[in-house]
Write a protein that binds this DNA or RNA. Structure first.
Length: 577
RNA sequence: GCGCCUGUAGCUCAGUGGACAGAGCAUCGGCCUCCGGAGCCGAGUGUCGGAGGUUCGAAUCCUCUCAGGCGCACCA
């Protein structure tokens, strides 16, 4: 029923299919036809690409070259057979054989207008795909230990994890965002003791901090809160010592306080989680023990030197790993084993972990776990986040690349703003080092890509406001009466913008499949890079009603896609700046 | 020593089998009686770290090699 089935093309763009899929189908049908007619006999999947050079068409396929070896004839011969079938499609303007045997396809302009109409009809829903088919997928990210505030590295992980989750959701997956809290073990005891010492310090008692204690300023604040709540009640406590049960009090207080800070940081950063999963719960529910039993039943455990080992080397790891130490306590890996087994039991078909790159040594043992449990290791995807190097006006901050370890997410967020912060984190591939220049991120100037993209949206909103003030009707969708006006968008720049808009779905699909949200960031910069020059050379609101309508529709589509794309990144699309 | 990641224009980086390798910034020179100048126009730049190999075709795949980062716990 969409306006896209306008008589001009006789073409119906079906929902739930990307344009690329549509073109691929045209080629497949041409191949089927050739086979049915006896001209060809080999069937192969169609690989489509968008050529960089426009003289090579809107789409191009190497199908003929792939078929050549088995067909026993030249790629160009095969291509010329296929070209006939492809050219017969009502959306194809022309189709030709080029170079060694490429088939270059040029689509009719009317087809592009129908795509534009389709984009407008879908509105904010444009970009939503069903690639994932509703499959349950879990993205676990940040999962910072509750021993201190989030630093800049966690921020990058948060931005990437959240954007991945957004993109996966758009691509049709059933996404659960999860944060794993390491709230058990020795580090928690250290945290509790650290609080106790700060508490005693506030009470004027002489204290000495061991090197491995948490000594940040934030601990002093927590100690003040503790003092407010408990007064001098624990003044002479001996946490952790026999006969004294105060340690859990300190631990709980510190942990809760830090976690609420982390939650606030994340909320202000625009990141929300569906599940906060506690490591302690794994133990309380007996899941760690249950997992050990299962592994034992699978004959992958053994005892040595008083410890219980997991023979991960049978599944590709460098060395076997300890699950239960000689002193009877379990390792972090034991918890993680139980946790990931639980993820599988909870029905997630695919599991995504976002880790700091310094944890890459853990990948083989986690993969080993999946294999030992008889699961396809491909169900686990680990995204590694490389370090962030902070600089200010080109000057590196602190002395090492580890500056990011000491600067909190909140500090950066407050200095440069949430939008710039998130956008910058998503300008690079996750596994590439990131140079984050605070001055640049703050700068409200053209060299700052965040504003360049946001400005595109604000500018269009402003144009529409201008039109309304002039009494011009600003349409959101193409109606039967306005469809014909789209042909007024006949400039090269206008068609180029429509073509770029049409590629949005492919970008989302690729971002989701590869879990590389930075592709969206690049896409948006390109889109803004097409729109601004166009705007500068052409007036949208003119005395010509038909032309004005057509251009307003084009603007609407650009604004919608920019807003949608920024939304996926967790960046706002302002109406005014 | 072993493993993982990275090496592409002056800088920061896209680009993972296609046709003469792209963008932003920086540099230089232009554009405001005009819907937002946070914008636009024009100009130059490459041994894709190196060497072999696979392929009709390689920045992309394989092998070796050089450089940088990170990891190699009965820590979390």
């Amino acid at each position: 029923m969409g306006v896209s089935q306008g008589q001009e093309t006789g073409y119906v763009q079906e929902d739930n299919r990307t344009m690329k899929g549509t073109i691929r189908e045209i080629i497949t049908k041409a191949l089927d036809g050739a086979i049915a007619g006896g001209a060809l006999k080999t069937r192969k999947p169609v690989i489509l690409e968008r050529p960089k050079r426009e003289e090579f068409g809107d789409f191009s396929t190497n199908l003929a070259m792939l078929l050549a070896p088995e067909e026993g004839r030249s790629p160009r011969d095969i291509a010329s057979i296929l070209v006939e079938g492809i050219a017969a499609s009502p959306v194809v303007a022309r189709c030709e054989v080029a170079g060694p045997g490429f088939i270059n396809i040029f689509l009719k302009r009317s087809y592009w207008y129908s795509i534009l109409a389709e984009i407008l009809r879908k509105g904010e829903g444009y970009g939503d795909l069903d690639t994932g088919g509703g499959e349950k997928i879990q993205v676990e990210f940040v999962s910072a230990n509750p021993t201190g505030p989030l630093h800049i590295g966690h921020g990058r992980g948060a931005a990437v994890g959240d954007a991945c989750a957004n993109v996966l959701k758009a691509a049709g997956f059933d996404v659960t965002r999860e944060y794993y809290i390491n709230d058990v073990g020795r580090q928690m005891e250290t945290l509790g003791r650290s609080l106790f010492l700060r508490y005693q310090e506030l009470l004027g008692m002489p204290v000495e901090f061991p090197d491995d204690y948490y000594r940040g300023e934030y601990m002093k604040e927590i100690a003040r809160d503790f003092l407010t709540k408990y007064g001098t009640r624990y003044r002479d406590a001996r946490p952790g010592e026999p006969g004294d049960d105060s340690l859990p009090v300190f631990i709980e207080f510190a942990k809760d306080s830090i976690m609420s800070g982390i939650k606030k940081d994340l909320a202000d950063f625009g990141v929300g989680f569906d599940v906060w999963y506690s490591e302690k719960d794994l133990f309380d529910k007996g899941l760690v023990e249950e997992t050990l039993k299962e592994l034992e039943g699978r004959n992958v455990l053994y005892e040595k030197d008083g410890a219980l080992w997991f023979r991960t080397t049978d599944y590709g790891d460098d060395k076997d790993r300890v699950l239960v130490k000689a002193d009877g306590s379990t390792t972090y890996f034991a918890s993680d084993t139980a946790y990931h087994r639980e993820k599988l039991k909870r029905g997630f078909k695919r599991i995504v972990d976002v880790w700091g790159a310094d944890h890459h040594g853990y990948q083989p043992r986690m993969k080993a776990l999946f294999k030992a449990l008889g699961e396809d290791e491909e169900r686990l995807k680990i995204i590694f986040i490389q370090l962030v190097s902070l600089s200010r006006g080109g000057v590196p901050l602190k002395m090492s690349t580890r500056a990011g370890e000491f600067i909190t997410l909140r500090e950066v967020m407050e200095e440069v703003g949430k939008d710039a912060c998130r956008f910058f984190f998503l300008m690079r591939r996750p596994d590439a080092h990131l140079d984050f220049d605070l001055e640049l991120a703050k700068k409200q100037a053209p060299e700052n890509p965040v504003y360049y993209v946001q400005y595109c949206h604000a500018r269009i909103m402003s144009i529409m406001e201008f039109a309304r003030e002039r009494g011009v009707d600003v349409p959101d969708v193409v109606g039967p009466d306005t469809l014909k006006e789209l042909s007024r968008l006949d400039q090269k720049e206008e068609v180029a913008i429509i073509k770029h808009l049409a590629g949005f779905e492919e970008v989302i699909e690729k971002s989701a499949v590869e879990m590389e949200p930075h592709r969206v960031t690049f896409y948006l910069q390109e889109l803004a890079g097409l729109f601004h020059p166009y705007y500068n050379r052409n007036r949208v609101v003119t005395d010509d009603p038909g032309l004005t309508t057509a251009r307003l529709l084009l603007c609407r589509a650009v604004a919608t896609v920019v807003a949608k794309g920024l939304g996926l990144l967790g960046v706002s699309a302002p109406k005014k700046m």
